[in-house]
């Protein structure tokens, strides 16, 4: 289907036709879409390695002092973590539906689903803030006024405890969930910008490539949390 593709000469985008503008360096729309999606996937590969450094540090400390890490991870709120996972999976669903709406060029649905995704993301951050506040009240923030919780010190009569590795778990916990939260904030900003641009009809065509690329990023942030939740919260919940 050799459609008439107008090369973007320069200056502001032309009136929104149903066909997206083709950048000058591409030959056809299919190649342009392919390049954007492969570009985002390669960027996600760099993000995997970025989180990978932290996961390597976590794996090392869990390997050399497993009991302290297990003991420390019991102080995380498994319930809130589970709730957060549900919220983030929900936001992934709404993001997938948003991409679908963009593919079918139904602008109203697209706007709704983007709004839901951003809202669920903000909801996740809210729950996370509650968790952080709880940990702050229990003096579990390392480097600040970190104290070994009373009942752990008492209980440790039966369990040996290296206090520095106990604190090390929280260093890694705050760094990993903090970095994830930062990526989520960037994701929410990206989704909001996409919603605004769709609402202002800025995109030439339905902006389907941009929405799909945003979706890829959002699903990646969700996959990171899918791994972080069991690794940090569910190490040893029984005792």
């Amino acid at each position: 289907m050799e459609t008439v593709t107008t090369h973007r000469a320069s200056g502001p985008p032309a009136a929104p036709s149903d066909e997206p503008i083709l950048e000058v360096q591409f030959d056809d729309l299919e190649q342009q879409h392919e390049a954007s999606s492969v570009g985002m996937w390669v960027f996600l590969a760099t993000e995997v390695m970025f989180f990978g450094g932290l996961i390597a540090a976590y794996a090392v400390y869990r390997a050399i002092s497993p009991s302290e890490v297990a003991l420390a991870s019991q102080h995380l709120n498994v319930g809130l973590g589970c709730l957060n996972t549900v919220i983030l999976l929900g936001s992934s669903l709404s993001m997938a539906l948003a991409v679908r709406a963009a593919q079918l060029q139904s602008r109203r649905n697209l706007l709704w689903f983007l709004a839901i995704t951003a809202a669920l993301g903000a909801c996740f951050l809210g729950v996370k803030a509650v968790e952080y506040y709880q940990e702050y009240r229990e003096h579990l923030i390392p480097g600040w006024n970190f104290q070994i919780p009373a009942q752990v010190a008492a209980k440790s009569s039966s369990l040996p405890l290296d206090p520095r590795r106990f604190e090390m778990f929280f260093v890694l916990y705050f760094f990993m969930t903090g970095l994830h939260a930062f990526h989520l904030i960037v994701g929410i900003a990206l989704v909001s910008v996409m919603a605004l641009l769709t609402w202002r009809r800025w995109f030439s065509g339905s902006g389907e490539t941009q929405i799909e690329v945003t979706g890829l990023y959002w699903h990646f942030v969700d996959v990171v949390w899918v791994f972080l939740y069991p690794l940090l919260y569910l190490i040893d919940v029984q005792s």
């Binding site: 760099t46 450094g53 540090a57 390392p142 260093v171």
Partner: peptide, 21 residues
């Protein structure tokens, strides 16, 4: 490169917040 970025970031965090990674 991302692994270098995280290693260097951890050094900066350790200097600023005195946590002992």
């Amino acid at each position: 490169t991302p692994v270098l970025a995280i290693a260097v970031a951890l050094v900066a965090v350790e200097r600023l917040l005195h946590v002992g990674i």
